[in-house]
């Protein structure tokens, strides 16, 4: 496969995944805040600032934000590079460039998705469409994921797309953790260890579509520790950083199984990092959560640039 086409496919995967997380983050944050148990978590400004933080466009503590403007910007604005709509445009642009390599079915779904997102009326969106738009976007990404899995040969093309999907998933989950960690400090819970018991942990799990799974496993209300353990370290949680790293590892190795022995290869680096997570426990992280979040970011960045150099350098 061409290095440039691989680059396109990798980024198609990343943007599809990014679209989903950003849309769900908007949706969950906005709607679950409406009846949040504490006043802080209910505040519009607080929620909108969290959304902007997640979109990589943070505002100061005292800056006034306008609800319709923020929602439009992060949801639909094609002039704001990190908007949900733009992520879809980029996903489609990359799919277009490599359309000879992907299935007609996948391309058609990406294309329909693109037409849906770019033609969604602004008025409707800011007034009544937030739920509809963001839910539709997350639904459509699920269709894309199914088309990726079900209509492509599981060969190099599939591996490269899945590398992109999982890289982005690990990154976005970590970004969400980062955003919600911030929020939990600002909006603590009402009893016991107030940081540990912030309502924001519940919101975080919902943003990651992992709340039900987590409740099933832990059988009690989410706390900082259980939430972070679940989203970072649990390999069976399909949204966890650990799970994403395992998948990246599997797909990178499938590209060239001989490379595991080469210490300069991506496979070697991912293998090394995933082993670190495999034998880490939440107590190791507890003392310095922010430090650990930063650590995850820097390791993911390192994997990203190693991949770039090994596979996409053209």
């Amino acid at each position: 496969m061409l290095a440039r086409a691989a680059d396109n496919l990798y980024w198609m995967g990343r943007y599809i995944e990014r679209t989903e997380h950003m849309a769900r983050f908007m949706n969950v944050n906005y709607f679950s805040s409406l009846d949040a148990p504490n006043a802080k978590s209910q505040k519009r400004n607080f929620v909108l600032r969290s959304i902007l933080f997640m979109a990589g466009d943070p505002v100061g503590k005292n800056d006034k934000v306008n609800e319709q403007e923020v929602l439009y910007k992060v949801g639909l604005d094609q002039d704001f590079p990190s908007s949900v709509c733009n992520s879809i445009c980029y996903a489609r642009e990359n799919a277009h460039s490599a359309r000879d390599l992907i299935s007609t079915e996948l391309y058609e779904s990406v294309n329909k998705f693109y037409h849906f997102a770019t033609s969604y009326p602004k008025e409707r969106f800011v007034k009544t469409g937030l739920f509809e738009y963001t839910s539709q976007v997350t639904e459509l990404t699920a269709i894309l994921r199914a088309k990726i899995r079900g209509t492509l040969l599981h060969d190099e093309i599939y591996a490269i797309i899945m590398m992109g999907v999982n890289m982005e998933r690990a990154l976005q989950i970590t970004r969400m953790i980062n955003a919600k960690y911030n929020d939990a400090r600002l909006a603590p819970g009402s009893y016991g260890d107030r940081f540990r018991n912030s309502y924001e942990w519940t919101t975080l799990l919902k943003c990651a579509e992992s709340y039900d799974m987590m409740r099933r496993l832990y059988k009690k209300s989410p706390s900082s520790l259980s939430t972070l353990e679940f989203l970072i370290l649990n390999p069976r949680c399909p949204r966890s950083v650990m799970n994403a790293l395992n998948q990246i590892y599997r797909h990178v190795v499938s590209l060239n199984p001989m490379k595991i022995d080469d210490k300069d290869s991506t496979a070697f680096l991912v293998g090394k990092i995933r082993s670190e997570y495999q034998f880490k426990c939440i107590e190791d992280i507890e003392g310095d959560i922010q430090g650990y979040i930063d650590h995850i970011f820097s390791e993911l960045t390192e994997i990203g640039s190693r991949m770039e150099k090994e596979f996409f350098h053209y």
Binding site: M1, L2, A3, R4, L255, N256
Partner: peptide, 9 residues
């Protein structure tokens, strides 16, 4: 004087 394409391998 041969033409090559740049692939992931």
């Amino acid at each position: 004087d041969f033409v090559y394409m740049k692939t992931i391998h």
